[in-house]
Amino acid sequence: MLLLQNNAMIAVVANGQAKRFMDIARAEGSGGGTVVPARGTAAKSFLSFFGLGDKSKELIFMVIDGDKAGRIVDAVRKEGRIQGVAAIMGAAKENSMSAKWKMITVIVNSGYTDDIMDAARKAGATGGTVMHARGTASPEDATFLGVTIVPDKEMLMILCSGEQLDAIVNAIQSLECLQEPKIGIMYIQDVTDFRNLDPRK
């Protein structure tokens, strides 16, 4: 198992654009990345109210040197044909108390992200990215007709500025539907650099 001491870059792009992104990244020296199908929640609250604004996205996860990551983002912006955002996160060693951007990650039982996103949006978040996931069954989970039951999960990532962080986290934590035990977890990471991939934005 290779342990990497580099930065992590997470890019969320429109569905079908991950390949183009990776082509550019490879040309800039990336060794490769992992692509996950995801769902972007709507930024406009009018559409999100009707549940209509969600869009299919692709999320690219890449472990890479911070400078290289910056160059990849520059190259993608220069090409100007990819719609999306990219966040670069520091390696574990770095001390970045002053980070301007934060990444909130929530892992909950399937079906709760719409409510979480609604609360987060009211507290100032602009949007989030949802991935479908599966929890690994814990040993005490009983079996049904000889087969283990694996819980369905959703993983929600919200990027926000440092000032908004507390408000959003509080809003999520005080959600009524999340008060049951074992419903999910949430953690926060520092983001050293966050940019839109579309140069016009």
């Binding site: 549940g51 709760y112 409510d115 609604d118 959600l175 539907c177």
Partner: peptide, 13 residues
């Protein structure tokens, strides 16, 4: 037992 907002979205759907 979908949570509130999720259920609202399902109804709209």
């Amino acid at each position: 037992r979908f949570p509130k907002i999720k259920f609202r979205n399902i109804c709209f759907g």
